[in-house]
Design a protein around this nucleic acid. Sequence first.
DNA 1: ACCCGTGTTCGCTG
DNA 2: TCAGCGAACACGGG
Length: 284
Amino acid sequence: MPELPEVEIAARNLRRWAAGHRVRGTESDPRAARVFRPAAARVLARLRGARVDEVRRVGKNLLLTLTPGRRGGPKLGVWSHLGMTGQWVRRRAGDPPLPARRLSLALDDGARLDYVDMRMFGRFRLVPGARFDQVPDLAALGPDPLNDGVDPGRLFERLKRARLPIKVALLDQKLLAGIGNIQASEALFRARIDPRRPARSLSRPEVRRLATAIRASLEFTLRSFAKIGADGGDADIAYVEENAPNPFRVYGRAGARCPRCKAADVVRIVQAQRSTFFCPSCQK
DNA sequence: ACCCGTGTTCGCTG
DNA sequence: TCAGCGAACACGGG
């Protein structure tokens, strides 16, 4: 389910659920071997007895720092990426596992944190010494729009050398970390920029608009997800619920009247094998 | 059966 | 060396 806003909710949940707690027991789904590195058995062994100290989010990545069970050892890092269908859910110790549960962490407070991931594009990896900066894929990430802000000058310099359509360029995690297929369409709609334009064709004022739109869209989506989860107090929420209304302006709305100019219908096109939604009338 | 899906990586090409 | 492209991964739903 994850682009930056969903992963941010997941980070807040994990913080609330796990920070300061020890892992008592572990279990994994043998079919999910591809999710783990090193092999699941070694991951589980290292986690047992460890205490979760910190949960961070960078782009779509969750970074956990733990203190290992054996005293005096170096910190233990966990890099969790949710792929397309990954979720962290909290269960009670005796609850039966949900379908597609790939990993369970039983905590010292009687709760269980389960990683559920139908398609298994997600990843759960140990990072020795919690040295996340030593992991090439993490080190290569661009700035995180919410944690670091979006610098329009830097964005312009980066985009002016790319021939790719701007929509496709925005999906590159080395440009900005956390924008996915939904947020790319949403940000370009807010900035009134045609997603098919070569990235290098954007003017400075357009890039400035885009930088603002990216933050606005991410923050709006985050607020709407947090609201969905807000019912019931101890919100276990995090993810778009089936019945929840589509919180997006254009994504998934092909054929609907443009909510801004109302002069045309939202259209769906395919770019880099992914759907793009936009208004052909007010996105120039 | 076919197409679609909030992500990423790999191998090939020019 | 590198930007860009398409296939691949895996599974369920319409």
